[in-house]
Simulated assay, not measured.
Amino acid sequence: MRLKDKVAIVTGAAGGIGRGIALAMAKEGAHVTIVDINEENGKKTLEEVNAHTEGLLFIRDISKRESIEEIIQAVVSKFGKLDIVVNNAHASRQALLVETTQEMFDLSFNTGFYPTFNFMQLAYPELKKTKGKVINFASGAGINGQPTQTSYAAAKEAIRGITRVAANEWGPDGINVNLIAPIARTPGVEAWSQSSPELYERMIQGIPLRRLGEPEEDIGRTAVFLASEDSDYITGQTIMVDGGSIKIY
């Protein structure tokens, strides 16, 4: 119970990596607030969270700053504090750089970068009180410059930039701000493995550990570590949870 009675917000938690993190944290005793736009799956995740602890669900468009402010206020009103913010939600479309449009940039930044920034900025006063933890999400697509990922890579690297700034500015307040860059077995990857088995197998062979990460057991447990006191002397870091695919320092 490393997160017993901690209060967490996890965006994009109706499925995939976000769901895995929400469940991993709930099993360690955290009260988890699920934020997503998928009501059906969000309710399912909430039921799973509530089997271990008390959670909340908000079906909101977090591209709107006022929605984020509402969520934070409701969580603090319900639980009396906020200890952990996990900025996982992000949507994007793939295209070659020369074919990338303003609309693609708007989608990626409005669902990924700006919600991350707004959650960080609006949660700061509460996180300062609890000496809390922020976990943001990076991607190998940005670190390596994956082809066709222009808008996604740009937003993810922008998130890395503000994470490092926050680590420097908020360190004196006792707030830890880190990133996870994952490779995981999400529903989207599962569907792709069925439609493109040869490309999928080639990807697996490029991972030194020869497997995809599991959303709860691998990514979720890493998030638990970063949210717990075990990581109190780690901040501003990109943690590669990708089976050894990318080595950075």
Rank of each mutant, 00 (worst) to 15 (best):
M1C: 05
R2F: 09
R2G: 12
L3N: 05
K4W: 01
K6E: 15
I9D: 04
T11M: 06
T11G: 00
G12K: 03
G12A: 03
A14R: 02
G15V: 05
G15N: 13
G16W: 12
G16P: 12
I17F: 09
G20I: 09
A22P: 06
A22S: 11
A24C: 08
A26R: 02
K27I: 11
E28D: 05
A30L: 10
V35F: 09
V35H: 02
I37Q: 08
E39W: 01
N41Y: 06
N41P: 00
N41W: 12
K43Y: 03
K44I: 14
L46C: 09
E48W: 02
E54L: 04
E54Y: 02
G55T: 05
G55A: 08
L56R: 04
L57R: 01
I59W: 03
R60N: 07
S63H: 04
R65F: 02
S67Q: 13
E69Q: 14
I71H: 03
S77V: 04
S77Q: 12
K78L: 12
I84R: 05
V86Q: 01
N88G: 06
A89L: 07
H90C: 13
R93V: 09
A95H: 06
L96E: 10
V98S: 13
V98G: 00
D106S: 11
D106G: 00
D106W: 00
D106Y: 04
F109I: 08
T111V: 13
F113Q: 00
Y114T: 10
Y114N: 03
P115N: 06
P115H: 11
T116I: 01
F119L: 13
Q121L: 12
L122T: 10
Y124I: 07
E126M: 02
K129T: 10
G132C: 11
V134E: 08
F137I: 14
F137M: 15
A138D: 14
A141C: 15
G142E: 05
Q146E: 15
Q146N: 14
Q146F: 13
P147Y: 12
Y152T: 11
A153G: 15
I159M: 03
I159S: 04
I162K: 00
R164M: 13
G171R: 01
P172Y: 06
V177C: 08
L179V: 02
I180A: 01
I183E: 08
R185D: 15
T186P: 09
P187M: 07
V189H: 00
E190G: 01
A191H: 09
A191I: 13
S196W: 03
I204M: 14
I204H: 07
G206D: 10
R210G: 02
L212R: 05
L212M: 15
E216C: 09
E217I: 07
D218Q: 05
I219Y: 03
R221K: 13
R221A: 09
T222V: 15
T222M: 15
L226Y: 04
S231V: 09
S231W: 10
I234N: 00
I234K: 00
I234T: 13
T235P: 07
T235N: 05
T235W: 07
G236Q: 06
G236V: 13
M240I: 10
V241N: 00
D242W: 08
K247C: 01
K247Q: 11
